Amino acid sequence: MKGSVFLALDFPVLEQAKDFIEQNELQGVPVKVGMELFYREGLPLIDWLKRNNHEIFLDLKLHDIQTTVKRAMKNLAVLGVDMVNVHALGGSDMIKAAREGLAAGSAAGHNPKLIAVTILTSMENHVMNNELGLQGSIQNNTVHLSNLAYESGADGVVCAVHEAGAIKKVCGPSFLTVTPGIRLLNAAGDDQKRIATPAVARKNGSDILVVGRTVTNAQNPKIAYEEVKKEWSHGEKS
Protein backbone atom coordinates (compact mmCIF):
# COMPACT_ATOMS: atom_id res chain seq x y z
CA MET A 1 0.00 0.00 0.00
CA LYS A 2 2.92 2.38 0.58
CA GLY A 3 3.55 4.46 -2.53
CA SER A 4 -0.09 4.38 -3.67
CA VAL A 5 -1.84 7.41 -5.14
CA PHE A 6 -5.54 7.31 -4.27
CA LEU A 7 -7.92 9.21 -6.54
CA ALA A 8 -10.74 10.91 -4.62
CA LEU A 9 -14.07 10.03 -6.24
CA ASP A 10 -15.80 13.21 -5.17
CA PHE A 11 -18.89 12.69 -7.30
CA PRO A 12 -22.53 12.76 -6.18
CA VAL A 13 -23.63 9.51 -7.89
CA LEU A 14 -22.10 6.24 -9.05
CA GLU A 15 -22.79 6.80 -12.75
CA GLN A 16 -20.69 9.99 -12.74
CA ALA A 17 -17.84 8.18 -10.99
CA LYS A 18 -18.04 5.30 -13.47
CA ASP A 19 -18.10 7.67 -16.45
CA PHE A 20 -15.09 9.59 -15.14
CA ILE A 21 -13.04 6.43 -14.58
CA GLU A 22 -13.96 4.86 -17.92
CA GLN A 23 -13.71 7.98 -20.09
CA ASN A 24 -10.29 8.84 -18.67
CA GLU A 25 -8.90 5.28 -18.73
CA LEU A 26 -8.33 5.20 -14.97
CA GLN A 27 -9.54 1.65 -14.47
CA GLY A 28 -7.91 -0.10 -11.56
CA VAL A 29 -6.32 2.93 -9.88
CA PRO A 30 -6.62 3.16 -6.08
CA VAL A 31 -9.65 5.26 -5.11
CA LYS A 32 -10.94 7.14 -2.08
CA VAL A 33 -14.69 6.97 -1.47
CA GLY A 34 -16.03 9.66 0.81
CA MET A 35 -19.29 10.32 2.60
CA GLU A 36 -21.09 12.05 -0.28
CA LEU A 37 -20.81 9.14 -2.68
CA PHE A 38 -20.99 6.26 -0.19
CA TYR A 39 -24.10 7.55 1.60
CA ARG A 40 -25.88 7.79 -1.76
CA GLU A 41 -24.70 4.56 -3.40
CA GLY A 42 -23.56 2.19 -0.64
CA LEU A 43 -22.84 -1.46 -1.42
CA PRO A 44 -23.35 -1.35 -5.23
CA LEU A 45 -20.58 1.25 -5.43
CA ILE A 46 -18.12 -0.84 -3.41
CA ASP A 47 -19.02 -3.99 -5.35
CA TRP A 48 -18.45 -2.27 -8.70
CA LEU A 49 -15.09 -0.89 -7.61
CA LYS A 50 -13.94 -4.28 -6.31
CA ARG A 51 -15.03 -6.04 -9.50
CA ASN A 52 -12.92 -3.55 -11.43
CA ASN A 53 -9.82 -4.11 -9.29
CA HIS A 54 -9.73 -0.80 -7.45
CA GLU A 55 -8.01 -0.60 -4.09
CA ILE A 56 -10.49 1.27 -1.84
CA PHE A 57 -9.96 3.81 0.93
CA LEU A 58 -13.38 4.24 2.56
CA ASP A 59 -13.17 7.73 4.04
CA LEU A 60 -16.08 7.98 6.49
CA LYS A 61 -14.20 9.49 9.48
CA LEU A 62 -16.12 7.68 12.23
CA HIS A 63 -16.39 9.59 15.51
CA ASP A 64 -18.81 8.26 18.12
CA ILE A 65 -18.96 6.26 21.34
CA GLN A 66 -16.85 3.11 21.43
CA THR A 67 -19.67 0.59 21.08
CA THR A 68 -21.15 2.34 18.05
CA VAL A 69 -17.80 2.64 16.31
CA LYS A 70 -16.90 -0.99 17.03
CA ARG A 71 -20.18 -2.24 15.56
CA ALA A 72 -19.92 0.09 12.57
CA MET A 73 -16.38 -1.05 11.82
CA LYS A 74 -17.42 -4.69 12.05
CA ASN A 75 -20.00 -4.00 9.34
CA LEU A 76 -17.57 -2.00 7.19
CA ALA A 77 -14.94 -4.74 7.43
CA VAL A 78 -17.34 -7.15 5.71
CA LEU A 79 -17.20 -4.96 2.59
CA GLY A 80 -13.59 -5.97 1.94
CA VAL A 81 -12.23 -2.44 1.51
CA ASP A 82 -8.53 -1.78 2.03
CA MET A 83 -8.43 1.24 4.34
CA VAL A 84 -10.91 2.96 6.68
CA ASN A 85 -10.65 5.83 9.12
CA VAL A 86 -11.80 7.38 12.37
CA HIS A 87 -11.23 10.76 14.00
CA ALA A 88 -8.30 10.63 16.43
CA LEU A 89 -10.14 13.18 18.56
CA GLY A 90 -12.50 10.34 19.52
CA GLY A 91 -9.79 9.17 21.91
CA SER A 92 -7.84 6.01 22.59
CA ASP A 93 -10.78 3.83 23.68
CA MET A 94 -12.67 4.64 20.48
CA ILE A 95 -9.64 3.87 18.28
CA LYS A 96 -9.10 0.56 20.08
CA ALA A 97 -12.80 -0.28 19.63
CA ALA A 98 -12.50 0.45 15.91
CA ARG A 99 -9.55 -1.94 15.69
CA GLU A 100 -11.55 -4.63 17.49
CA GLY A 101 -14.52 -4.15 15.18
CA LEU A 102 -12.38 -4.50 12.08
CA ALA A 103 -10.78 -7.68 13.40
CA ALA A 104 -14.19 -9.16 14.20
CA GLY A 105 -15.69 -8.38 10.80
CA SER A 106 -12.78 -9.04 8.45
CA ALA A 107 -12.35 -12.17 6.40
CA ALA A 108 -9.29 -14.25 7.25
CA GLY A 109 -6.16 -12.59 5.95
CA HIS A 110 -7.81 -9.28 4.98
CA ASN A 111 -7.82 -6.66 7.73
CA PRO A 112 -8.39 -3.13 6.40
CA LYS A 113 -5.79 -0.59 7.49
CA LEU A 114 -7.11 1.63 10.27
CA ILE A 115 -6.19 5.27 9.78
CA ALA A 116 -6.91 8.12 12.20
CA VAL A 117 -7.69 11.65 11.03
CA THR A 118 -5.66 14.22 12.96
CA ILE A 119 -6.30 17.90 12.14
CA LEU A 120 -8.22 18.47 8.90
CA THR A 121 -6.12 19.94 6.10
CA SER A 122 -8.83 22.58 5.60
CA MET A 123 -8.18 23.98 9.09
CA GLU A 124 -5.96 26.92 9.96
CA ASN A 125 -4.15 27.46 13.25
CA HIS A 126 -6.32 30.31 14.53
CA VAL A 127 -9.49 28.27 13.93
CA MET A 128 -8.04 25.31 15.83
CA ASN A 129 -7.02 27.58 18.72
CA ASN A 130 -10.08 29.83 18.93
CA GLU A 131 -12.94 27.58 17.85
CA LEU A 132 -11.82 24.11 18.94
CA GLY A 133 -9.91 25.32 21.98
CA LEU A 134 -6.81 23.31 21.06
CA GLN A 135 -3.80 25.41 21.98
CA GLY A 136 -0.39 25.38 20.33
CA SER A 137 0.51 24.75 16.71
CA ILE A 138 -1.24 22.51 14.24
CA GLN A 139 1.92 20.43 13.92
CA ASN A 140 2.23 19.84 17.68
CA ASN A 141 -1.42 18.82 17.93
CA THR A 142 -1.11 16.59 14.89
CA VAL A 143 1.95 14.81 16.29
CA HIS A 144 0.21 14.37 19.65
CA LEU A 145 -2.89 12.86 18.02
CA SER A 146 -0.71 10.67 15.80
CA ASN A 147 1.11 9.25 18.81
CA LEU A 148 -2.25 8.63 20.51
CA ALA A 149 -3.43 6.74 17.41
CA TYR A 150 -0.19 4.76 17.23
CA GLU A 151 -0.41 3.69 20.87
CA SER A 152 -4.08 2.75 20.37
CA GLY A 153 -3.41 0.33 17.53
CA ALA A 154 -4.01 2.42 14.41
CA ASP A 155 -1.91 1.68 11.33
CA GLY A 156 -1.40 5.33 10.46
CA VAL A 157 -2.91 8.79 10.22
CA VAL A 158 -4.28 11.29 7.77
CA CYS A 159 -2.18 14.44 8.00
CA ALA A 160 -0.84 17.29 5.92
CA VAL A 161 2.38 16.67 4.01
CA HIS A 162 4.35 19.14 6.14
CA GLU A 163 3.57 17.16 9.32
CA ALA A 164 4.56 13.71 8.00
CA GLY A 165 8.25 13.92 8.89
CA ALA A 166 7.61 14.92 12.49
CA ILE A 167 5.08 12.09 12.85
CA LYS A 168 7.60 9.54 11.56
CA LYS A 169 10.13 10.65 14.17
CA VAL A 170 7.68 9.95 16.98
CA CYS A 171 5.75 6.94 15.63
CA GLY A 172 8.39 5.21 13.53
CA PRO A 173 8.90 4.56 9.81
CA SER A 174 6.25 1.83 9.50
CA PHE A 175 3.42 4.07 10.77
CA LEU A 176 1.55 5.20 7.64
CA THR A 177 1.16 8.87 6.75
CA VAL A 178 -1.74 9.41 4.35
CA THR A 179 -1.61 12.90 2.89
CA PRO A 180 -4.41 14.72 1.07
CA GLY A 181 -4.10 18.29 -0.19
CA ILE A 182 -1.84 17.21 -3.06
CA ARG A 183 -1.66 19.66 -5.94
CA LEU A 184 0.34 19.96 -9.11
CA LEU A 185 1.94 23.39 -9.43
CA ASN A 186 -0.64 24.68 -11.92
CA ALA A 187 -3.66 23.58 -9.86
CA ALA A 188 -5.67 25.75 -7.47
CA GLY A 189 -5.75 25.03 -3.75
CA ASP A 190 -9.55 25.32 -3.36
CA ASP A 191 -10.65 24.78 0.28
CA GLN A 192 -7.49 22.95 1.33
CA LYS A 193 -5.12 25.18 3.32
CA ARG A 194 -2.10 22.97 3.98
CA ILE A 195 -1.30 21.73 0.48
CA ALA A 196 1.85 20.46 -1.25
CA THR A 197 3.13 19.03 -4.51
CA PRO A 198 3.90 15.31 -4.91
CA ALA A 199 7.63 16.08 -4.89
CA VAL A 200 7.36 17.88 -1.55
CA ALA A 201 5.27 14.99 -0.23
CA ARG A 202 7.98 12.50 -1.13
CA LYS A 203 10.68 14.67 0.45
CA ASN A 204 8.68 15.04 3.69
CA GLY A 205 8.02 11.33 4.21
CA SER A 206 4.45 10.82 3.01
CA ASP A 207 3.57 7.17 2.40
CA ILE A 208 0.27 7.47 0.55
CA LEU A 209 -1.13 10.37 -1.47
CA VAL A 210 -4.77 11.35 -1.96
CA VAL A 211 -5.46 13.46 -5.06
CA GLY A 212 -8.75 15.02 -6.01
CA ARG A 213 -9.38 18.19 -7.95
CA THR A 214 -5.83 18.47 -9.28
CA VAL A 215 -6.85 15.42 -11.37
CA THR A 216 -10.65 15.61 -11.64
CA ASN A 217 -10.59 19.28 -12.73
CA ALA A 218 -7.68 18.86 -15.14
CA GLN A 219 -8.15 19.22 -18.89
CA ASN A 220 -6.77 15.70 -19.26
CA PRO A 221 -7.28 13.81 -15.97
CA LYS A 222 -5.34 10.72 -17.07
CA ILE A 223 -2.25 12.80 -17.88
CA ALA A 224 -2.63 14.74 -14.62
CA TYR A 225 -2.85 11.50 -12.62
CA GLU A 226 0.25 10.14 -14.38
CA GLU A 227 2.10 13.40 -13.67
CA VAL A 228 1.29 13.05 -9.97
CA LYS A 229 2.55 9.45 -9.97
CA LYS A 230 5.72 10.37 -11.84
CA GLU A 231 6.55 13.31 -9.60
CA TRP A 232 5.71 11.21 -6.53
CA SER A 233 7.91 8.32 -7.70
CA HIS A 234 10.90 10.39 -8.74
CA GLY A 235 10.64 13.24 -6.27
CA GLU A 236 10.84 15.91 -8.92
CA LYS A 237 8.50 17.87 -11.13
CA SER A 238 7.86 16.03 -14.40
Rank of each mutant, 00 (worst) to 15 (best):
A116T: 10
A98F: 04
K113R: 13
L89G: 11
A88K: 11
A104P: 06
K74Q: 15
L134S: 08
I95D: 09
R71D: 14
A98H: 04
E124K: 12
G90W: 06
R71M: 14
A77H: 00
E100H: 09
P112Q: 04
V78C: 00
A103N: 09
L76H: 06
V69E: 05
N75F: 10
E131F: 11
L120T: 11
V127M: 13
A107V: 00
A107F: 00
H63Q: 11
I115C: 05
V81P: 00
L62K: 03
A107E: 00
A97H: 08
N75D: 13
G90R: 08
L132Q: 05
Q135P: 04
N141F: 06
I56R: 00
K70S: 14
N141M: 07
K61E: 11
F57P: 02
I65Q: 03
N129W: 06
S92K: 13
S106N: 03
A104K: 13
T142Q: 06
K96D: 06
T118A: 02
Q139C: 12
R99V: 05
Q66L: 11
L102S: 05
G109D: 01
L58D: 03
D82V: 01
G101P: 04
S106T: 02
V81M: 00
S122M: 02
H110S: 00
T68M: 08
S137F: 10
L114V: 03
H126K: 11
H126E: 14
M73R: 10
E100Q: 15
I115H: 02
A103K: 13
H54E: 04
H144I: 10
V117G: 04
L60S: 07
E131M: 12
N53R: 12
A97F: 07
K70H: 13
G105E: 09
I119Q: 14
L132N: 05
V127I: 14
G91R: 05
I138Y: 07
H54C: 06
L120N: 09
L76K: 06
N140G: 07
Q66D: 14
R71F: 12
T67I: 13
H144R: 15
V84A: 05
E55C: 02
K74R: 15
A104N: 09
T68G: 09
T68W: 08
M73S: 11
L58K: 02
I56C: 01
L102E: 05
L79K: 00
I95Q: 10
M94N: 12
M83A: 09
V127C: 05
V86E: 02
E100A: 14
V86G: 02
L62M: 14
G105V: 07
Q139A: 12
V143T: 12
M83F: 04
E124M: 10
I138F: 08
M123P: 01
L60N: 05
M94Q: 13
E131P: 01
S106W: 01
K113N: 07
L134F: 15
G133V: 05
T68L: 09
K96I: 11
H54Y: 03
N141L: 07
L58T: 02
N125S: 12
H126P: 01
S137E: 11
I56Y: 00
G109P: 02
T121V: 05
P112R: 01
N130Y: 08
L134P: 06
L120E: 08
A103G: 03
F57H: 07
L134T: 08
